[in-house]
Design a protein around this nucleic acid. Structure first.
Length: 223
DNA sequence: GCGACAG
DNA sequence: ATCTTGTCGC
């Protein structure tokens, strides 16, 4: 496969200027989660979108799309690997949520265009990036207590938040994706926490995408 | 030049 | 990301 990483980076820089950050938000009825897993030595991409009711956070619908993996994993270019599958799953969704939590960074990205931004812009839906580890930026040390939070900074500019979502767990890296601001992105993620490290939409999507036993059983029951 | 690097 | 045994703490 041919891939021009220079060109892809350039594309991110230009797309990043289209990102809108807004803290006003219409009332929510459905909230989504998005994640990607792999099959057969990574040759097959399995993308998952889940839809939960708000504020009950009960599973309403989920869709899985399987497509051939198009790109290898390259730090900073993750979205080009994951968005095609996510779009395929998104198109199958019957109950479209107004907001989606995406596994990975939002604007906390070298060119301010992580997978949450890329997916949100392409699907035209509000998104928040919820990453399990850091890509870029710096933050002050966190407390041990849950709900401990610090701004994630790139020099003088804020990129997002570092949030301890659960005791004795590594923190989450939360950043605006598309059509969501800093304070609301943190607020939505906190409201989706139910005693696990990951917020419910991400946890469900992650469980299905990674074929975890619990979700595999649920899968078999529903289908 | 060197280290760091979402999934 | 993926595979994988035991171990620790609630």
């Amino acid at each position: 496969m041919v891939l021009d990483t220079q060109q892809l980076r350039k594309e991110q820089t230009s797309q990043a200027s289209k990102i809108i950050l807004q803290d006003e938000f219409p009332s929510l009825k459905l909230i989504g989660g998005a994640d990607v897993g792999f099959e057969q030595q990574g040759t097959i991409t399995r993308a998952v979108i889940v839809v939960l009711s708000w504020p009950q956070l009960e599973l309403v619908e989920y869709q899985i799309a399987r497509i051939p993996t198009q790109l290898p994993y390259i730090p900073g270019l993750l979205s080009f690997r994951e968005v095609p599958g996510l779009m395929a799953a998104w198109e199958k969704i019957q109950h479209k949520p107004e907001l989606v939590l995406v596994d990975g960074q939002g604007i906390a990205h070298p060119r301010r265009f992580g997978v949450a931004c890329h997916f949100g812009l392409q699907a035209n839906v509000a998104t928040i990036g919820v990453a399990k580890s850091r890509l870029c930026g710096d933050a002050a040390e966190l407390d041990d207590s849950p709900e401990s939070v610090q701004p994630l900074m790139a020099g003088k500019n804020q990129l997002g938040w570092v949030l301890r979502s659960k005791k004795r767990c590594k923190p989450l890296y939360v950043s605006p994706g598309y059509k969501v601001g800093f304070s609301s992105s943190l607020s939505w993620v906190k409201q989706c926490l139910k005693g696990y490290r990951l917020p419910e939409p991400t946890r469900f999507a992650d469980g299905i995408a990674s074929n975890r036993t619990f979700f595999k059983r649920m899968n078999e029951k529903i289908s």
